[in-house]
């Protein structure tokens, strides 16, 4: 499998670490409910088909990226930057 890191370019998947479903959003710091945190930690969809997921380029720039991968074919259709510098990268790309 090949993953195109938005920062480094196309690399072998061995350089990356899977970090799970990108849809899981941590509740805000003001939210202290067990239920909301429970959902964030444990509840996951298991879709057949397109799946947005977090990967970390651990063997490279160590930044996270959101990879859209088809769970049936492993085909990767999109690799997006995420994090504090993502906006700047997107702006620079334009």
């Amino acid at each position: 499998m090949r993953i195109t890191c938005p920062w480094c370019g196309e690399r072998d998947h061995q350089e990356f670490t899977y970090r799970g479903d990108a849809a899981a959003k941590r509740p805000a710091m003001s939210d202290e409910s067990i239920e909301a945190h429970q959902a964030y930690v444990y509840d996951r969809e298991n879709p057949d088909g397109a799946h947005r997921e977090l990967w970390n380029h651990t063997g490279g720039c160590r930044k996270h990226l959101v990879v859209t991968r088809n769970t049936l074919t492993h085909q990767i259709t999109l690799c997006e930057p995420i994090g504090p510098w993502a906006k700047r990268l997107k702006a620079a790309a334009k």
Binding site: R19, T58, R62, H64, G83, P84, A86
Partner: peptide, 15 residues
């Protein structure tokens, strides 16, 4: 990795 995850994904607004 834990810290990187939280800075990149959870609280990207933190400087």
């Amino acid at each position: 990795e834990h810290l990187e995850y939280h800075l990149d994904v959870v609280w990207p607004d933190l400087k």
